[in-house]
């Protein structure tokens, strides 16, 4: 989140800064929780693709901080354990163990499980999204791969009956994803928080009640692609038949849609008029964005070192 005039266009953006969230997406998880009571009874949580950490902040406040108020001496008390995983470094958050690692690596799974003392997770979430290229089908494929990467780890570490929440883009093949998730969870819902713009394809898949597939043992292995991982899982993904490449059609299902967040809550599509005094007071972002890969190119351009098509002698 930068320090720009986006403040006015999007009230959630400004509110996030005011309330100390690292990204406006914090409100999305809060509104999803309002609707689905996601955090109820939840103690062991994994936040995947967590950086910069706004969802971890929400989890810390809603699960870790609230548990502090409970009577720890009670026998029923379980200490909350929150783990955030990302390839990027993340500044620490109270009550959250951050792991800088690849979510497809088996070692990452073991690290998470060791934080949980060998117990499985109650709740796994992922707000991850790749940089979009603009090729809609490729972007959708990459996003689906990201969800599958999160899902394969989830299949290994989520307890039976647990919940999985992930960001999706409702594009051409999202009904394939709904159908396949339907094999792994009791209930699959497509949820759109009011803090997510109506003009964006973004939604969240809320998968409630994990039911491990009978006779399929999910195992994370190095050098195994997501396709290979889900082979034999029986979730309706088309299998490769080396002797017959006429590729079968996969089943499609439309998941029920639920808009969440109170109707009286702010509308992320609306333009709000800010108080005149507030308008001038530009807030610094809670966390500065990480350096982009093209920072060298930007620096060169600034210094005038970028090449134009001038033939130098």
């Amino acid at each position: 989140m930068g320090k720009s005039s986006k403040d006015k266009r999007d009230l959630y953006y400004r509110k996030a800064k005011e309330e100390g969230w690292r990204a406006r997406s914090a409100f999305k998880l809060l509104q999803l929780n309002e609707q689905f009571q996601l955090f109820k009874g939840v103690r062991r949580v994994v936040d995947l693709c967590a950086a910069p950490g706004s969802w971890s902040q929400v989890l810390s406040r809603e699960i870790y901080q609230k548990a502090k108020l409970e009577d720890t001496k009670l026998e029923s008390y379980i200490e909350p354990k929150l783990v955030a995983v990302d390839l990027q470094p993340m500044s620490p958050i109270e009550g959250v163990t951050t792991i800088q690692a690849d979510i497809t690596h088996p070692r990452t799974m073991n690290k998470i499980l060791s934080v949980f003392g060998g117990e499985k997770a109650d709740f796994v979430c992922s707000d991850g999204a790749p940089d979009v290229t603009g090729l809609h089908d490729l972007d959708e494929y990459i996003q689906a791969q990201l969800i599958l990467s999160a899902l394969q780890l989830t299949c290994c570490i989520l307890k039976e009956g647990g919940t999985f929440v992930a960001k999706i883009f409702r594009g051409r093949d999202i009904d394939l994803m709904y159908s396949q998730l339907g094999f792994l969870f009791e209930k699959v819902v497509c949820a759109k928080p009011r803090s997510s713009r109506g003009t964006s394809l973004e939604s969240f898949i809320v998968c409630i009640g994990y039911k491990p597939r009978l006779g399929w043992k999910p195992t994370l292995e190095l050098d195994k692609s997501t396709e290979e991982f889900f082979q034999n899982s029986g979730i309706g993904r088309a299998q490769l038949n080396k002797n017959d490449l006429s590729f079968p059609l996969e089943e499609r299902i439309i998941a029920p849609f639920i808009a969440c967040g109170d109707l009286s809550s702010y509308d992320s599509d609306a333009t709000y008029t800010l108080d005149k005094n507030l308008e001038r007071l530009s807030l610094d972002p809670v966390q500065m964005p990480t350096a982009p890969p093209y920072k060298t190119a930007l620096e060169m351009k600034r210094r005038g070192n970028m090449q134009l098509a001038v033939r130098k002698k």
């Binding site: 940089d131 290229t133 982009p292 890969p293 093209y294 060298t296 190119a297 060169m300 351009k301 070192n305 970028m306 090449q307 134009l308």
Partner: peptide, 28 residues
């Protein structure tokens, strides 16, 4: 790559022979 440069490499040594800068955005 996403760094907006074009690089050429010598496959016999693996060394980066030259880098070209100029594109103002990603190169496809």
């Amino acid at each position: 790559s996403d760094d907006r440069s074009v690089k050429i490499w010598d496959l016999s040594t693996g060394s980066n022979l030259a880098t070209g800068w100029g594109h103002n955005s990603r190169i496809w």
